[in-house]
Amino acid sequence: MTDDPLLVPLTSGVPYYSLRHGQSVWSPRQKPSFMVYDDWDLFWIQRGAVTIAFKDRRRLVAGVDEFIVLPPFTPITMSAAKPGVVLAFAHFSFRLPRPFAMDSAQAKALEGDALGPGPDALLPMKFDSSEAPAVWQAYGDLLQLRPSPSEPWRIERALVTLVAKLAGFAVRRTRAHPSGMVLTPQRIDARVETVRQRIDADPSFHWRISALAAEVGISPSQLQRLHATAFGETLKHHIVSTRLRMAITLLRGRSNGRPRSIRDVSSACGFSSPNYFCRRFKAQFRITPLAYRNGEMTV
């Protein structure tokens, strides 16, 4: 395989831009944000620093001119590690070329690969602009473009270039680090782990922080302090985020062949009222539960 990024085979599909890229400026009081997308995500930290917590307890911190790549369906909680965060983001997917004829065995082998390079990719991945100047330049070029109805191909061409540079960098890093850029698990207090496992196992239960603290033999204030230190968020925020992740699944599912009502999903996830559920869902994902259920947008 060549080291020329523009000649590196990307995937079985062709990258395309879904009109979702831009810049996010965080307020000084920005709360931790839970995110999960069904496409590839590339974040460029332009000011400040962010902490990303993964569901398996891994964490990473990214500062100015550092990049983070996430594969599809990777749930994270992003919070500010330093105030004044400004980050650029780009989301991209892959579509299969047409006609796409293959036998059933080939189709089975490529199943799930249309969104990216598959389970062997070195992702999630973090790197800085000095490690991958070509990626930095290509991303900057993409951010300079504005959608034009008369020339939509310009953005797609810029995106293909960015993804190609990113693929080339990933290939070279794989060769330099055969074992992969593994994120080191942070040591978490066993009592905090126990509490989170209890919550994750039954998000809809009406948890009381005082009762959870009593179960592991510490005070509520100590539990909340240990949790905030380890995960950068309050325990209450984690409970709500876990319920919202549950809601994402239920909203796209069906009950007796029909879409679930917002009231039913709210109750099943443990929210006190549909109105409160809708407010928290929209605050977290910038879309209403009804719009998400109807397929108007992914989160």
Rank of each mutant, 00 (worst) to 15 (best):
A230N: 00
A230G: 00
A230S: 02
A230Y: 01
A230E: 03
A230T: 00
A230I: 08
A230Q: 03
F231W: 03
F231C: 02
F231S: 07
F231L: 08
F231Q: 00
F231D: 02
G232W: 11
G232V: 09
G232S: 02
G232N: 10
E233M: 13
E233W: 01
E233Q: 11
E233S: 12
E233T: 14
E233L: 06
T234Q: 05
T234Y: 07
L235M: 10
L235I: 01
L235H: 09
L235A: 11
K236F: 00
K236N: 05
H237S: 10
H237C: 01
H237V: 00
H237L: 07
H237F: 04
H237I: 05
H238E: 13
H238I: 04
H238P: 03
H238Q: 13
H238G: 07
I239A: 00
I239R: 00
I239D: 10
V240D: 15
V240C: 04
V240N: 11
V240L: 10
V240W: 06
S241C: 10
S241V: 10
S241Q: 08
S241D: 15
S241A: 14
S241L: 10
T242S: 15
T242F: 08
T242D: 01
T242H: 13
T242A: 12
T242L: 09
T242W: 05
R243I: 04
R243C: 08
R243Y: 08
R243W: 01
R243M: 05
R243E: 03
L244V: 02
L244F: 09
L244G: 06
L244T: 02
L244S: 09
L244I: 04
R245P: 14
R245C: 05
R245E: 14
R245I: 11
R245T: 09
M246I: 05
M246W: 14
M246H: 14
M246G: 08
M246A: 14
A247V: 12
A247S: 14
I248T: 03
I248Y: 01
I248G: 00
I248S: 00
T249P: 00
T249Y: 06
L250Q: 11
L250I: 01
L250K: 03
L250D: 03
L250R: 10
L250C: 02
L250G: 04
L251A: 03
L251C: 06
L251V: 06
L251R: 15
L251D: 06
L251Q: 09
L251T: 05
L251F: 07
R252L: 00
R252T: 08
G253E: 04
G253K: 01
G253A: 04
R254N: 11
R254H: 11
R254Q: 14
R254I: 02
R254P: 07
R254A: 13
S255K: 04
S255V: 13
S255Q: 12
S255L: 11
S255M: 10
N256V: 07
N256F: 12
N256D: 10
N256M: 14
G257M: 14
G257Y: 14
G257F: 13
G257P: 08
G257Q: 11
R258C: 07
R258T: 13
R258V: 13
R258K: 13
P259Y: 07
P259T: 15
P259K: 12
P259C: 02
P259G: 09
R260K: 12
R260S: 01
R260F: 04
R260T: 06
R260L: 14
